[in-house]
Each structure stands twice: as structure tokens, then as C-alpha cells.
Nucleic acid binder design. Sequence first.
DNA 1: TATTGTTATACTCTATAACTATA
DNA 2: TATAGTTATAGAGTATAACAATA
Lengths: 163, 163
Amino acid sequence: MAENAADRGATSEGRPTRPDLAAMIVPLGRALVAAEQPILDAHGLTMWAYSVLLHLDETPIRTQAALAEAIRADKTRIIAVLDDLESRELIRRQPDPEDRRVRLLSLTAEGRRLRDAVQTAIQQGEERLLARLPAADRAGFLKGLQALSTLPELTRGRGPSAS
Amino acid sequence: MAENAADRGATSEGRPTRPDLAAMIVPLGRALVAAEQPILDAHGLTMWAYSVLLHLDETPIRTQAALAEAIRADKTRIIAVLDDLESRELIRRQPDPEDRRVRLLSLTAEGRRLRDAVQTAIQQGEERLLARLPAADRAGFLKGLQALSTLPELTRGRGPSAS
DNA sequence: TATTGTTATACTCTATAACTATA
DNA sequence: TATAGTTATAGAGTATAACAATA
């Protein structure tokens, strides 16, 4: 209970001792996205399209609405993205024979190849950045980041609440 | 040179072993901002207004354009924000006697008081999240985050390049 | 003429609402 | 009638361009 202030960030005492998390994380996120952009451009992918490829690779999915929710996008927003990916034969979008309203979504072999190429390039860029951290901090940073980004109260925070 | 793959994220080998940094950091940033929102609302501040208060507190600043650049906002975007903060006497905005085109910006005592109250509340919320990390990871996470967010190639990445 | 701040305009992104087809 | 997907419309947020004041 009695940890020291340097560890916890002086909360109950006077002035804070570190910048707000959001003030560090949001700009960092923007910078990472900006760094990805040239790679995505080179492969003709938008961020949303890349996000779709990433998510379909993990789990083929049954409805577009479910996919949209999984990547935290509006269902109307991914339609043009799916149109494009399908026309380039990077994904399959087939009506479910058992309920022809729903579209079964999955990745093609070509789609998986592209996804791998892009992700490898992106993570190589990221590794260049991480390499500038002391090894101990880097490991802790990654562990902490992965732990935080899987906390349910963060991941689920934004659902369509009541009604 | 020969660190193992678990440490570095398998870059030159097959499939990546962790999610993309951006895929973890951007949603985390969104969640943190969403968590701040009720606190800001309670004090009648927008995120941009809070950002202005934060930055002026550290260093009183000479021109609005410089402030805008510092918080990575468009110079036209902060004008309404400054109007509001000035009318509530949270900041001062005085023409510089030596060059009456420029506005000298500084925080009032009331502005500092509000800033402290809001930041304390925000960081208390953040500490609740960080408390869920193992202590070792939390320290590494914070150190790594602070190191990354002060890297110049990230902070400066988006300047109005050439011309 | 160059620069600071401001206002007015246009554009991009996103969400809401209306529509089609299946059930 | 309810749901999946689509299309059309409107709104928020942002940047670009034109303007006024000062140097």
C-alpha cells in the first residue's frame, strides 16, 4: 500500500511527476501510423483495409457487421474497403447458403501473402524504433503494452451503451 | 547482435509474434482519451483547451502560432479555444508592446488551479489502470513510453516538409 | 513586402437515416 | 416483422485560402 511516489506518480500529493499517459500515447500512435503510411501506400492498402486483412487472417468471420465491430469501425465504413479487397481477390465474400443475407468473409492465399509482406515491413520499422530503448525497458514496455491493450475495460469501453 | 526472437519480435523469420505496435497503441490512446472525457466535461474543457493549459503551464509562450505548433494543432483551430479560455480568465492574451502583432500567452492563477485539479483527476484514473500491471512491467512500460515519446524522429515527424 | 492573427470557405472523415433483399 | 447489407444524406472536425492589422 505504501509505495513511493516515484513509482506511482504522485497522485495524492502536489503536482504530477510525469506527463499524462494519453499525452504521450496519442502522439506516439499518430507517429507510428504516419510511419506505416508509406508502406501501406506502396501496397495500395488503406489503414482500414490492412486492419481487415489482419483480422480476417486470425479468424474468418461470418458477417460484415461482426467484422466491423471487431476492428471498431462503422459497418457502413468498411463496405467500400471490402469491395476493393474482393475485386483484387485478396478476400472472399460469399453469401452464406444457409442464410443468404449474411456474407462469409475469408482471406485468399494472395491476401495472406500480402498481409504477411506488409506486416513484416511494418514491424521491421517498429523494431528500428524499439531498438533505441534499453533492452530492459523495451521488454517491460512491450509486456506492459500488451497487458494494457488486452484489458477488457479498455478494449470494450466504447460499445453502443444503453437503449 | 544475436538476440533471440522472443526479445526482438521475429522480423527476418516467418510470421510476426506480436501485434503491430500501432494496433495496440492507437486503441489504447483512444480508450485513455475516452476515459479523460468525463473529467474534462465536468470542468468545461475540450481536449484542445486542456492541451493549451498544460503547455502554457510549462512555458509561457510568445505567439499563438508557436503554441499551435507545440501542441501539434492548426493555428486556426486554437483561436476559438483561446477565446474561450481568455473569457473565462484562465489565460492571459496580451498584445506584445514591442510588436503589437504578436500575442503574449500565459496562464492565470485560476488557470493553473484548474489545470492542476484536472490533471490530478486524470492521472488518478490512469494510475488505476497502471495498478493492474505487475510492478516491474509498469516501471518498464513508463520508462519505455517516456523514452519513445521524446524521440525526435517521432515528435518532429510531421513538419510541413519542403518548400 | 512580410508576418501575426482572424475569418470564411472547402474538404475529409465519420455517423445517421433511408432503402433492398432475404428470412 | 426483423436482420444483413447497401446507398444516400448530413454532421463534425480539420485544413486551405482569403483578409485585416502591424511591422
